[in-house]
Design a protein around this nucleic acid. Structure first.
Lengths: 217, 217, 217, 217
DNA sequence: GATGAATGAGTATTCATTCAT
DNA sequence: GATGAATGAATACTCATTCAT
């Protein structure tokens, strides 16, 4: 967690530092992300950085946390589906919107992706905590599905969680690749992600899952 | 490719170097993997390393190649399924055995995983080539499935490839996590992976996919 | 160009670093000059060097520049010859003083000599520029001599430039050798160069040139 | 001096090694000339090199010696001037032919030039010996000139030696530069040096020297 | 609270030389 | 006499972190 000094900064400066940090950690893995480079580009003193953050790790974990919060906020600000919604309708919505989040925050999404799938500079512990939260959420969805009678009750919960989470986590990258879009194009704004029809792809995928997970009578 | 010098080494020494290299590149990404550390642990001179390999990159690409070859050999030495096999029977077998490979070569699998999914120190080119081959293989399976009438013909090929490849690539990690096994435990041999019932989990997963992808009449 | 950091150093420390750097580059050509050796002798940290200079090249080019500036300052602080001076009187003065400069800054002169005549670590471009300036200056002298009627007009300009520049550039070394003085003796201060009668030698040499270049009636 | 083993080699192999060594030492100064590179290109074993030569230094000094011998042989095989020749006629001939030698053996000449003017990896001693010989030769010429009554007797011998030797040593490079010819062009044979009119330039230069050094009545 | 110079262990890579085969 | 693998000190350069101002 950043020091209080960081939060005392003018909004603009604080946001600049964060934006540049996200860019740095999106383009390099943890070890290669350079604090020197960051402070140079942000125009702040080396020493100041260490008054804002305990160390590099502190900043990094903060970015991960931000990524989670931003995604949550993104989804919440969209018209959330009605509560009684059919599970797979919700999943279809979440998959499309999740991909939209990745498309509109490509750098932040890249930081999160790295953290989830490959770059674990401090062992698994700090990430397992995050991941456990996410998994718990998927689990609640699976259980909802079972109670709605749209997921076969005999299936192993964690297996279904794996299936859903894996597909959801990688769907954004798949859309990207299937459209031959480089992540840098997104960040530079040279591609208008809204033109990509995510709903069509998400719909097909959800349909497959829905059939596959349906109760066997 | 390593120099001939490397292949002239006594088997034991050569294998020691490889094992330590695999460990190094499994625990750190390319940039952070340390040749200094490697040679220190292997007990060879710095200069000797550079008689065996052109440079760090040379070693790295060799490890990637080994990973591919080892996996291929692993699968081939298992009783391969009969040619006319039903697609999903084959997938069930491949998923189980793939996971078994990861369990018996956890560090090597980790090197390959990194290479495929995150660490691209030399741009995408050398890896895209590999990945394209893998994807082409998945595509052939999907087309086989369609011709066997077990996959709905209207589904988008690349979507199904994405679904299958993503699940196959992550299945091993899932089994690991679901058993609360750390990769280091595997490497150290303190866990007997054979006690894990991969077939059961693979069976459930394939069943889901089979239903989900089945033709809609 | 060094960083501002370098110029902020206490005069004494900055000068120490420069002196040792000049010594290093006087005794070794560019590739062999060792930054490690320099920082060890100067008692500064490796990292500090790289806060003062961008890299080795940066320091080197700075030394070359210093050499030029020092020579210019040296010549200017001597009573400069009156403008309407006879060309060969000027040359006599310049030859003596040029040698005196080499004698009072032997290491710096050696760095410059190397740069001009043999060690071209970055291709010829940055040096050709310098050399072209020097040659242009010699050319202006030759043309002056022709207009003063003291140099035969039919002689090839570039040939005379070659003759003058070669002799001027090597005169210092000749005086040194003729007195059996090692450059290190000069640097250590164990030899008093003022005792060497450069004017006598320069006078003889200029006389030869004057007669040789004189117009043929 | 090379070991006997070197001279026992088949002529062709021995010459190949020498040619490649000359190329190596022409393109790099002493420290940067790479034995590794040499043996690789010559197709001989590292160890063999150290059976032929004591060390890198041994080879280097041998090359210097060869340069001297080759130049001597080159000049001798040309129709040598008749003994009673006028000094300056001889010098004119020697200057042209000396430049021709540099043009026909550009790599060897480059090795020698480096040794004479900049790269003194072992201090001055081994070179002073060579240089003393050369200087003694120039001195004999000067004394001949005085006795022929074509050089002013009052001039300082060593000064005249300096004048002549400096000009002679640099004349080749001057011709090269004045023709805008790169040394590599010569080595590759892409330039026909015979088309360059050295005699004209040498003639002008000698004329200047002759007048400058002439006795003053 | 801000600064930015100083630190030094860390990196990959090179190369002349040795010596056992 | 030939081989070529082994050596290890050497190179330039980086970077997170500290601390005196």
């Amino acid at each position: 967690m950043p020091q209080q000094t960081f939060f005392n900064l003018p909004d603009e400066k604080r946001q600049l530092i964060l934006d540049l940090a996200i860019e740095e950690f999106a383009q390099h893995d943890y070890k290669n992300a350079s604090i020197s480079n960051l402070v140079a580009r942000a125009g702040i003193a080396k020493g100041s950085f260490y008054q804002y953050f305990e160390d590099k790790r502190d900043l990094y974990l903060y970015l991960i946390q931000i990524a989670g919060e931003e995604k949550k906020r993104f989804l919440e600000q969209k018209s959330p589906p009605n509560p009684g919604m059919h599970l797979f309708d919700f999943l279809r919505w979440a998959m499309s919107e999740g991909a939209r989040f990745e498309f509109s925050n490509p750098l932040l999404a890249q930081v999160a992706y790295r953290a989830l799938f490959s770059d674990r500079p401090f062992g698994n512990d700090p990430f397992n905590q995050l991941q456990d939260m996410v998994m718990a959420y998927y689990l609640s969805l699976v259980q909802l599905g079972k109670s709605q009678g749209v997921i076969e009750g005999d299936l192993d919960d964690s297996l279904v969680v794996f299936l859903l989470s894996t597909i959801f986590n990688n769907f954004g990258k798949f859309v990207l690749e299937s459209q031959k879009i480089a992540p840098t194009d997104l960040a530079s704004g040279s591609v208008d992600y809204r033109s990509v029809n995510m709903d069509e792809l998400a719909g097909q995928l959800i349909a497959i899952l829905q059939r596959g997970l349906a109760p066997r009578n």
